[in-house]
Amino acid sequence: MSTPIPAEAGVLIPMPELTPAALREAVAKIAPSRVPDLTQHLFEATTSAQQTQSLAPLRAFIHSWAVFVEIERHPQRAARLHHLERLIQEGAEDPAPLLVEIQQILEKAEAETGL
């Protein structure tokens, strides 16, 4: 059980516990338009976990949404990631450096969640 860290300057919310309910609550606060995606992903992960008798789909769900929350709760980091994604979608001449920076953002967020 993780203990929420007090909100830092420039951080929208503390990092929630890594449970489906806590992640859903966090997503509802910082990116409400993504709650249906989270709900669908959780349904699919639960169904898959039951069918395969494995917790791997639920672990993947937690991992994915924990990283999402960790990025989105930092507005400057989230804005930079979305900007890089837009540049790639628009067909940047050389997307390689953009992809490297995106990977760095994802890796940093993953490390900060403790996953």
Rank of each mutant, 00 (worst) to 15 (best):
V100E: 14
P14W: 02
E8H: 07
E8A: 11
I88F: 11
A7I: 12
E72A: 09
A79Y: 12
R73L: 04
L99C: 05
H63D: 10
T52M: 14
Q76C: 06
I88A: 12
L98C: 06
A109F: 01
H41A: 15
H82F: 06
E72D: 06
P6I: 13
K108T: 12
A92S: 11
R24I: 02
S2L: 15
A56L: 09
Q89Y: 10
E110Y: 01
L23K: 09
Q89I: 04
P97N: 08
Q104P: 00
V69S: 06
L18N: 05
Q104T: 09
A79D: 13
A111V: 06
R80W: 12
V67R: 10
T19K: 05
H83L: 10
P16W: 01
R24P: 01
E107I: 12
I13Q: 00
S2E: 11
Q76F: 14
A26W: 01
R73G: 06
E90A: 15
P32K: 08
P95K: 07
E101P: 03
E72V: 06
T113V: 09
R24M: 01
V27H: 02
Q40Y: 02
D37M: 09
E25Q: 11
E107H: 11
E93K: 15
R59D: 08
Q51G: 04
L87Q: 13
P32M: 06
S64W: 00
T46A: 10
A60L: 04
L84T: 11
P36C: 08
R73W: 01
A21C: 02
Q76N: 13
E101T: 06
H83Q: 15
E72K: 11
A7L: 04
A79I: 11
L55M: 10
L12H: 08
P57W: 04
L81I: 07
V27A: 07
S48Y: 03
E85C: 07
L98P: 01
Q76Y: 12
A9K: 14
V11W: 04
S33P: 01
L12R: 14
E72S: 06
E93R: 13
F43Q: 15
V11D: 03
A109H: 02
T47H: 07
Q89T: 12
A96I: 07
V67F: 04
G114D: 06
T113K: 07
R80V: 10
S64T: 15
A31M: 04
F43I: 13
T113E: 04
Q51D: 04
S54I: 08
Q103R: 12
E107R: 13
Q51C: 01
A26V: 03
P6F: 07
I13M: 03
A66F: 00
M15F: 08
M1S: 13
A9R: 10
E93T: 15
E25Y: 00
A26R: 01
I13K: 01
Q51V: 03
P6C: 11
L12V: 13
A31T: 07
A66K: 00
L99W: 00
Q40S: 14
P97E: 05
A9T: 13
L81V: 11
F61Y: 08
H74Y: 05
R34W: 02
A21M: 03
